[in-house]
């Protein structure tokens, strides 16, 4: 479970302070698929960075799976991030001089798993995204959709409790975007909690719950109808 209470994140310069998140509270239960929407500059990505332990916050409380993250050391935060969180970015963020296999291997390396276990996990993740045959390809040899699927494989290879996706379909055409979102739904059905930041209202409709942000604050919680049966997703109401 992800639980934020009255969290504030402030960006400071010499002259001004800007609240990216202001008294932000949100609870995401295990297995949920939550879409975070809002206009540009509303604090969506900041929320994702704070949730993913990539940024600290100035005030409030944040618990991730029962761990108060506020006073964790960098090593502890990194370990928690590595074991509990998978990231998916709009720009894929694959490492260009590593092949598909080695890209998926990156988070597993920091977990000090045995070579055999890493091989098994990488194989399973690539199978899931349908790219096992491309394991030795370099990112530049793949289409955008394939690169994002590799990024998804990398995010889930460590079997994280949470997958945080920042505009994962933003750089993809509609066909590839649909494939990616179906993959996210599939991962959610397998038990991972998905938090999806998006501009795309249609995409947000696929989530169990939509959180709308304006000026770093939640302006609206909306529960949606269950997803169409064709996608096979389960639904939960806020």
């Amino acid at each position: 479970m992800l639980k934020m209470h009255e969290v504030s994140k402030i960006y400071r310069t010499d002259l001004i302070e800007t609240y990216a998140l202001r008294n932000f509270s949100l609870e995401v239960k295990a297995g949920e698929f939550v879409a975070v929407t809002g206009p540009s500059g509303s604090g969506k990505t900041t929320f994702l960075n704070v949730a993913g332990l990539l940024e600290n916050f100035e005030a409030g409380a944040y618990e991730l799976d029962g761990t108060d993250v506020r006073n964790l050391s960098d090593d502890e935060r990194s370990k928690l991030r590595n074991e509990r969180i998978g990231f998916i970015f709009q720009g894929f963020n694959l490492i260009p001089d590593l092949n598909v296999y080695d890209n998926v291997d990156v988070p597993l390396r920091y977990r000090r798993l045995s070579a055999a276990e890493r091989r098994e996990r990488i194989g399973s993740a690539l199978d899931l995204v349908g790219l096992a045959a491309r394991a030795r390809h370099m990112p530049a040899q793949l289409s955008g959709g394939q690169q994002q699927r590799v990024a998804i494989a990398r995010a889930i290879a460590g079997d994280p409790a949470f997958v945080l996706a920042d505009e994962p379909t933003g750089n993809l055409d509609s066909l590839m975007a649909r494939q990616v979102i179906e993959l996210l739904e599939q991962i959610n059905e397998m038990g991972a909690t998905i938090i999806l930041v998006t501009h795309d209202a249609e995409l947000a409709l696929r989530a169990h719950r939509n959180v709308h942000l304006i000026d770093g604050q939640i302006s609206d919680f909306r529960a949606y109808e269950p997803r169409p049966a064709a996608t096979g997703g389960s639904a939960a109401l806020a």
Partner: peptide, 14 residues
């Protein structure tokens, strides 16, 4: 790339 590694679990020490 360092940022990506950090996001994927690398600590500052790593």
């Amino acid at each position: 790339i360092t940022g990506v590694r950090r996001a994927l679990g690398a600590s500052r020490r790593h």
